[in-house]
Amino acid sequence: MIYLQLFWTYLKIGLFCFGGGYAMISLIQDEVVDNHAWLTNAEFTDIVAISQMTPGPIGINSATYIGYTVTGSVIGSVIATVAVCLPSFIIILLIAKAYQKFNSNPYVAGAFLGLRPATVGLIASAALLLMNKENFIDYKSIILFVSAFVLTKFCKVHPILMIVLAGISGLFLY
């Protein structure tokens, strides 16, 4: 039963992927290319490319795309997408309840004292990891990066407007 297989596979991906996005790619590839042969490696690479060019995280995008491709119906998309979200949904709701109840607890408060500065480091590492050859293809990329940084940080341009502006400038620059 293909729907059940899809559901089970994406439930596993949702449950065992730590670290989000790019850490997820290899596990997804393992499941859908190697284990189930739902896609070829080339098709999988296409999905990664499409995910980077469309809104939404790769975990969701690949679920929606593969769900449709494998079953030929929207139901497959819905099942895979729901399955990949379900584990984090349940875990988070439990954690969120605990956070509201325990965030005045001295131990929990202490833990967050250490977590907060580390989180700043995590966000910084995300930006650093993205400074790669795929995202920075030439000197124009660096100009775009600096302009976007200055415009959003100092001129308070809204991030969404910034993405739209960058897209339009790309039509002229490339």
């Binding site: 700043v120 966000i123 910084a124 930006a127 995202n135 990066f145 960058a166 897209g167 400038s169 790309g170």
Partner: peptide, 26 residues
């Protein structure tokens, strides 16, 4: 492709900005 060549480095900048404001905030 043209639009995304320009959007990608801009998004990296968008992620870099909250690093500094969050550091200040906490």
């Amino acid at each position: 492709m043209k639009m995304f060549n320009a959007i990608r480095p801009a998004v990296v900048a968008l992620i870099a900005v909250p690093v500094f404001s969050t550091a200040k905030g906490i």
